[in-house]
Design a binder for these strands. Structure first.
Lengths: 205, 205, 205, 205
DNA sequence: CTATAACCGAGACGGTACGTCTCGTCTTCGG
DNA sequence: CCGAAGACGAGACGTACCGTCTCGGTTATAG
């Protein structure tokens, strides 16, 4: 795993799993902030040092735990219809963001604001692979003329997922699958008034 | 102020200001996480209890301090050209997000992930008024046919600002004024291939 | 009163009494140590400043309150029989030391160990007058040949009352009227074996 | 030690000693009341928690520290002359009570007035053993006919030491070796007028 | 088949910050 | 213009965690 810092020559797999499980469980029950390393160690039936041996911080433990729990969602579908594929993946993300478990993810991102190492771990382990999957799918879409050829793909990825993170992290509204429709609609069709009516319309059509 | 929790039957204005100043200063110097309430009190020449009397937490102090420091930026310009007005305001935000000072804002949003009260304060005091200003500007733009009449304005606001927050909070790339151009371009013109000069359009359709 | 520090020109007698009453009541209920000046002020329906205006400390308030409550016990009886008079007075003291109320007295003496002003107030207000009364009674007893003419009276007073304070302050055993008998017996008759039996007796007699 | 509250599975002996030393030193310099637990920890180069782990209060630390410093004085001499032995031990106590260091002892006894646990610790650790030594010496004296056979020894011990504590705690006069002479003289010979040269005795009887 | 090196649990350690409490002074305002 | 109410600067309190260190005891490869 990316967040490990030592060579796991003698590492006890039993302890390893127990720690990840305990960490997730406690965070779900009482939140990340109120979950101390001592508590995780106690819950996992493990010495505190065993945690510090393999992870640099509480947050790193949870990055790995979340990664393990959500690993399958990395894959990006490919049906030939980019809109459908994006919708499929984004709805999955939106559903997760609407879950109780997402608050652990939320809190880790929060912690990362004051801890560059955690920020780095989140980016590399959780965000990176998914962004990359999306980017690759968009690349193929661009090759097939489904989207503007001049679009900078990294920016497009941002525009797609940023609104989900915005709601998650600012707590303005709950994240729902509906939001995905709105995003895709606005982003694909643009914000300008549509053809029918005005003179522009004729040029456009 | 929105973040105060008690009825200020009489409070020392001198202490009030000193606390806000000290909090901002220390956060700039050493970060929000490493700034203790004791340190703020010491720096402000104030008893710790005086801070706890008027604010529920360190974060609440900084919400008010940031609000006071950035109050002028609430206003939304109105030139008649919605794209120009949005660009103007968003560039200002992007510039701020690129500043050293933004890391205090970043960290407070981080802290809010584990503290609903802080989240609420940020929303009500810092985000709310600005979002509302933007929404009103968009409303006028819609009335004047500058944007799609069916656009849900809250969603549009999200799409505009979310990418800035995304970079700020996930730390993928620095926030720059350039990003604003990209956002406005993609969002206004849409992601679909453009039709203008015939041939592609036909191929596409 | 000896413990007052200001000229009571405008002093409100109602507040004065209310403070003493409140102080005694709270100390009885929860002990001197847990009784704060704020609490006394609240209980007495008085501003905190009013307490500090007339007394230098919480302890000073209670010295006066206890003095007021126990003032009558200053007088020393005079029946002509010094042993009876001492017994009478000492039994009264012993009874008081066995009371719930004595723990307030106990705690004030405790506080005085770290506060010379309080020590001084206790001595001058509470202990002094009673010791003086006892000393005068002993003086008359000495004149009438009831006690050794060479006895240093201050030392005798000490020997009489010290054992009561010893039990009160060290908490070895409860103070009871019985103790008074023991003290008087041992002190008046001395510790040496009594005449009847041995050869010593003849020398002695 | 009697004042410890936890099972020392393993405790740092270095820290243990450093804490006792620091506590004694600071109390000597600035008094028990003005000596905070933080200050002791700082002075000892120790975490505050380490103090709270092994002692229930600041006072308990000092009970142990004083005990350690004065442990040798527990033994009671035995020369065959009870008066000489008592004088020897009591003079030692009186000298200690006249020392600067005694004010720490004074203040702890003061603190014990509001804290039963401390009172208990003082009794068990400091007072108890010495009282018991004295009692045993008196017991032997009684067997050898040096003192009245009907004397209740606990009461005699009280009468001997109480006057020293009386002066120490009420601060009436300083405790000096002279006081010991007075106590022994009055207590052994009694307060009644002496009969030696006949006439008075008859008058008296 | 040791032995030796790294693991493991438990938890004490030096620290830092927390949020609360009380102190004794200072400020405001109503009667 | 006094007094109730309570805000103020100050600082100790006892608790919670942090991340490191110190224990014995238990694997589990390497000789």
């Amino acid at each position: 795993m990316t967040t490990e810092s030592a060579n796991p020559r003698y590492r006890s797999e039993r302890s390893h799993q127990a720690i990840l499980d305990a960490a997730l469980k406690l965070c779900l029950e009482q939140g990340f902030a109120k979950t101390s390393v001592d508590a995780i160690a106690k819950e996992a039936g493990v010495g505190k040092q065993t945690i510090y041996r393999w992870w640099p911080s509480k947050a790193a433990v949870l990055v790995e735990a979340i990664d393990r729990a959500s690993a399958p969602s990395v894959d990006f579908p490919e049906t030939g219809d980019v809109l459908a594929d994006l919708r499929h993946h984004m709805v999955a993300v939106a559903r997760y963001f609407g879950t109780d478990q997402s608050s652990t993810y939320r809190e880790i991102i929060g912690a990362a604001q004051s801890d560059p190492n955690t920020a780095q771990a989140i980016l590399a382990t959780l965000v990176g692979p998914r962004v990359e999957g999306c980017r690759r799918r968009l690349e193929r879409a661009r090759q097939q003329g489904e989207i503007r050829p001049d679009a900078a793909l990294d920016d497009v990825v941002e525009l797609l997922y940023a609104p989900l993170y915005y709601r998650l992290l600012l707590g303005t509204r709950p994240v729902t699958p509906d939001q995905v429709e709105t995003i895709l609609d606005l982003l694909f069709d643009g914000l300008r008034p549509r053809n029918p009516t005005a003179p522009d319309a004729t040029t456009d059509a």
